[in-house]
Simulated assay, not measured.
Amino acid sequence: MPEVTIMSRITRVLKDRTKALWLLCLLLAVDSAWGEPQVVELHILDAPPLTFTNDPRGHGIVGDVAVKAITRAGYTVKIHLLPWARAQKHVSEEHDFLIAPLSRIPGRETRFTWISSIMPMERAFFSLDHKVDSFTQAKERFRKVGVGLGSAQEEILRTEGFRDDQIYPLAIGDNPAQLLLMGRIDAWFNGVPESRYIWPKVSKRKLLMSSVGSTADLYLACSRQCSAKLVEDLREAVEALRKEGAIERIHDVYLP
C-alpha cells in the first residue's frame, strides 16, 4: 500500500476521533448545564421570627418561605449575610440577586424588582413608661427612638418628620430590648411580631405598645435588573405555597 494512502487514512481517523471527542465534550457540557440547577443568592438578616441566621428550626417565617419557593422553582439557594443597609445596596446594584424580608415602601420602589408579598408587617412604638397613639405624640414624647440601621423603620420615621437626633440607628450587635431597659433609648419603633418575640426572652417587665403606626407588606425581592423568568418562576412558587397553606403552616412553627 502506498505510503501516501496510509498517511491519508491515519489523518482521516485522527480527524474523526477529534470530532467525536469534541462532540462528546459538547454533549457532556450541555447535559451538565441541564442537570445542575441554577444557583441564586438570597440575602437575609437576623430578624426573628421573620428570618433566622442560626436556628435549628430553619430560617424563620419569611426565610423558610423564600427558600422553599426557590427550591420549588428548580433553583439552588445560596444564603448570604451582610449588614442590612449594605445588603440592600449590593442586591440592588447586582443582577438576579434575591433579598428578603424587604418592606415595599416608596423609597425602595425603583431600586428593586418586587417578586411576591409573603406577609404583612405592622409596626409600632414600644416603650416602658409611655404609650403613644400617633407619630405626632411619639415625636413630642420620645427623645431617642431605636430603629434598625438601613431598615424601613428608619425611613418611615424620617418621612414622618423625626429629627436626626431623635433617631437612634441600631447596628448589628446592638440589642434594642437591652438598650430600652438601660434607658439608652426611650422607645423602639419596630415590627410587632419581631418585638413581641424578642421581649420575653430579655425581660419580664411590661412592654407598652402604641397603636399600629405603619403597615407594609414584606416581600421576596430581586435586583433592579432581574431575569423575567426568575421573577415569574418564583412568583408562581410563592403563590403555590400560599394556596397550599404552606405559608400559614410555616408561620405557626415560629409563632404558634
Rank of each mutant, 00 (worst) to 15 (best):
F112H: 08
R184Y: 06
D129I: 03
I61V: 15
V67R: 06
L50N: 05
Y219A: 08
E36M: 10
G60P: 00
I250M: 07
L241F: 08
L230N: 08
C25K: 06
R242Y: 13
V91Q: 03
E94V: 00
N175K: 13
D165A: 08
W84G: 08
V91E: 04
G63L: 04
H43M: 04
R104P: 00
S8C: 05
L234H: 03
F126G: 05
I118M: 14
E109P: 00
I247C: 05
D31T: 15
V147T: 03
D217G: 12
P120S: 12
M209I: 04
E93W: 04
K78I: 00
I247L: 14
G63R: 06
G35S: 15
G191C: 08
F142A: 09
H95Q: 13
Y254W: 11
T76H: 11
R242M: 08
E140D: 14
G107P: 07
V192D: 01
L21I: 12
T76P: 00
T76R: 10
S92P: 12
K144P: 00
Y254G: 03
K229L: 09
N54R: 12
G213S: 10
L28W: 09
F162L: 12
K139G: 11
V145D: 02
T11Y: 06
R57E: 08
A85W: 03
F162P: 01
M209P: 00
D96C: 08
S223E: 07
R205L: 10
I44M: 09
I61N: 02
A177F: 01
